[in-house]
Design a binder for these strands. Structure first.
Lengths: 232, 232
DNA sequence: CAGTGGTCTAGACCACCAG
DNA sequence: TGGTGGTCTAGACCACTGC
């Protein structure tokens, strides 16, 4: 037996090859798991794992009884990491700097109450801070934190540790939403980020919940030129 | 036996609960698979599948012999779908429109040759098109296609089918990269997208390869107000 | 109803690597 | 070098769903 036992990666790669070379065409039914297991000389579970992952990636469309088809519209997905800003900067080989602009408790503005689904009188902590890379503005963080959900944040020295970093390590969340867009710099942002007024800023908005309890919502503003990259 | 057999989802959920409630703290070693299997009354494979997925999601850190730890810096990931523009528009409940602006063969500009790693004389098809949603500009597609890689594109009536759609269905790729940013509208883009000059546009750049052979690189420009959303 | 994928099990062997 | 996760197997039962 010079042959190693067939691995699920091998099955997956072969399946991908057949899809890419159009041996298995889009929309077409492929053999069932039992047949493939026979063909590859492995257990059905091995085939199952290989194909399950492809289905998860949107390459295949699997349904009981109906069988497995090559996806007609391979919904490709792009994945972006959401690192702590400090690590994001350091990963670029730059030195991270941080300056607290302000941290005050305040009642939530209306648009936040609706976005975060908060009662009228919910106490929020409003934190604004500037992150630097090699001394240059890297991102402006404008964040609202539900202090009912994470009361410990009130005893944190936000001049030393960014809310971003503290929350990541101390406030787990079960769900959230994120939106990316481009907006013109307003006066405040332009001044802080040292960009031209109305310059195009890259905006990341993120809101997170823990078990339906809103934790925080943040607007991260990046100066012109910032690019968010990923591999496909 | 009123008890159903333990599912991997149940194990995963319980593991998540222990992480979120800090029963298992960041950086801490959790019990090994055999012990957990015993505790949950299931097979080790079931525990393995539950934890393997959490490790893939960056929640856990697993190493042979060293055991499994709760990740210190849970690298959260955001995934965005990359649908065909037509479907993206229709998913918003709007009618998709399409207008070809131009399709010409041309030699690649220098910055493209380096980005796509092409020889000097590579023939490229340069396609520009406007996508509409309910008659309003939705996205401006500025694309270069390597006709050596997908010669069939030359016989496609790009006035009827967008390059975007045709490529998705006819040009599989094995890899690529993507970058998101905000840029000011230049004159051409402002005119086509009917936006103010220098207005902040949302830019999606995407380049794909098939087995190291560059397929296409595209710049998608979205008018002000466009938001790319996802759930976390 | 019957065929297909989804999952669980018990056992086994292996690859890796911290101690 | 022993403990841990990674994987494969053969078999089984189940859930879903097209026919």
């Amino acid at each position: 037996m010079t042959e190693a036992q067939t691995s699920w990666q091998a099955v997956q790669q072969e399946a991908l090859r057949r899809i890419q070379t159009r041996i298995w065409k889009p929309g077409e039914l492929i053999p069932n798991e039992v047949d493939l297991a026979t063909e590859f000389g492995c257990a059905r579970a091995t085939v199952n794992r290989a194909l399950r992952e492809l289905a998860g990636a949107g390459i295949l469309d699997r349904r009981r009884k109906a069988g497995t088809r090559v996806a007609l519209h391979p919904v490709r997905k792009a994945t972006f990491d959401i690192p702590v800003l400090q690590h994001e900067v350091e990963a670029r080989g730059q030195t991270h700097g941080y300056a607290l602009v302000g941290a005050v408790t305040a009642r939530a503005p209306l648009h936040l109450r609706s976005r975060m689904n908060l009662p009228d009188d919910a106490p929020l902590l409003h934190v604004r801070a500037l992150h630097l890379a090699d001394g240059n503005p890297y991102a402006y963080e404008d964040r609202w934190i539900n202090t009912d959900a994470v009361p410990d944040i009130l005893s944190v020295d936000l001049a030393r540790i960014s809310a971003n970093e503290w929350l990541v390590q101390n406030a787990p969340y079960t769900g959230g939403e994120m939106a990316l867009s481009a907006i013109p710099a307003d006066e405040e942002a332009a001044a802080i980020l040292r960009s031209a007024p109305a310059a195009p800023l890259f905006l990341v908005e993120r809101t997170t919940w823990n078990d339906m309890v809103p934790i925080t919502t943040v607007r991260l503003l990046y100066p012109p030129g910032h690019r968010l990259r990923t591999a496909l």
